[in-house]
Design a protein around this nucleic acid. Structure first.
Lengths: 198, 198
DNA sequence: GACCGAATATGACAGCGGTCATAGTAGCGG
DNA sequence: CCGCTACTATGACCGCTGTCATATTCGGTC
């Protein structure tokens, strides 16, 4: 997650996502976001008149778009594309981060879902949209590899679900093995889904 | 999750788990836990001198033991045991709850991980222990079905990861389809893992 | 320079959080 | 009745949070 040095507004959204994925939505304060972004506190109510909810929702949306865009980048980096290779690349992003930077942070969309699904209707919807924004390009990539369209959507759901859960377990255990394990275990299933006649 | 009407201490732990899995750890207050349990506020510092952290950790531990025990019950309810059947039973517990009681609550262990992995060392460890308490009987059940021991542990990790992630997506989208989808997609892989010669 | 909107700076407020301190009650063995 | 322990009750404290209200500064444009 490279820092985009755009305007202060974008920086605050980015910082919010960073803090949310580390501490959760409730434990992340607005003053903290501003400080983390190096932005003036007064800008909060100027750029986000909708308050914390707006900021959180934008952070979640940003995370969804980020995850979606990564799919294309992972795909381009694969020498010979395969569903399992793509899934491995998605997981490797997390193992790399955890091995170099520690297990402090998880997925901001997961954090928003856990903290806001029951009470924050708008944020819950933002999380659902983020998952959709993530899943769509993933399903498309699978079809491009020869997975039947009907199957691709289901497989995308499976891949994201498994990855999210493995991230949770990895953080709890401070060990990347859940991530490497699910990649290994899912490999044959994923590759068996490509229709060779396609 | 039937309510155990034991002493007030147990009720508070149980209520804490309920509230945590709905609103997250940070958003759950101690006064709220006492009120939900119908327990006097003064009992909090008496039964949990370690403060909120102790209460949360016990709630997470309770959840882990609960999940572990459920494995045996699911197993007993299957007419002809199979890995996919067990996984389907695990997922059905969630689809049932979501269809009858709404999508308000998720997994308390996941909530504790999201909210405390970075800052609450003890709680993070409690979450890791809960995952272990959940995974052990699951792996044992798989070996009893004929899955090689080496494979059973990995498969247990895969099943729990996928289930946790599907719970997240289901809550965000307010739709049980992620759960039903991963059950369907994982079925062949799970059943292929049983060694017929065993 | 005057002007005006965007952006920033501060301060205050009301609410709630966990926690501590202290006092009170209930039950029971002596 | 005493004394002791387990439990309950209540109030206060301090820190923090999101939000609002109110200046103040900045950057251009006429």
């Amino acid at each position: 997650m490279a820092q985009a040095q755009r305007g202060p507004r974008e920086r605050m959204v980015f910082s919010a996502a960073q803090l949310i994925r580390r501490d959760g939505v409730t434990a992340t304060g607005m003053r903290e976001v501003a400080a983390h972004a190096g932005a003036p506190r007064g800008s909060l109510q100027h750029y986000f008149p909708g308050g914390k909810e707006q900021l959180v929702n934008e952070a979640v949306g940003w995370a969804g778009r980020y995850a979606g865009k990564r799919i294309a980048r992972f795909l381009a980096a694969l020498d010979e594309p395969s569903p399992s290779g793509l899934f491995a690349a998605m997981a490797r992003q997390w193992t790399d981060e955890y091995e170099t930077s520690g297990f402090d942070s998880g997925c901001p969309v997961a954090a928003a879902t856990v903290d806001c699904a029951a009470t924050g209707a708008a944020t819950r919807q933002a999380a659902a949209a983020a998952f959709a924004t993530w899943r769509a390009p993933l399903a498309e990539a699978l079809t491009d590899m020869g997975v039947p369209v009907a199957r691709a959507a289901s497989l995308a759901t499976l891949m994201i679900s498994t990855l999210e859960g493995a991230i949770l377990m990895a953080r709890a255990e401070r060990d990347v093995r859940p991530l490497t394990t699910v990649v290994r275990e899912l490999r044959p299933l994923l590759d068996a889904a490509v229709d060779p006649s396609a």
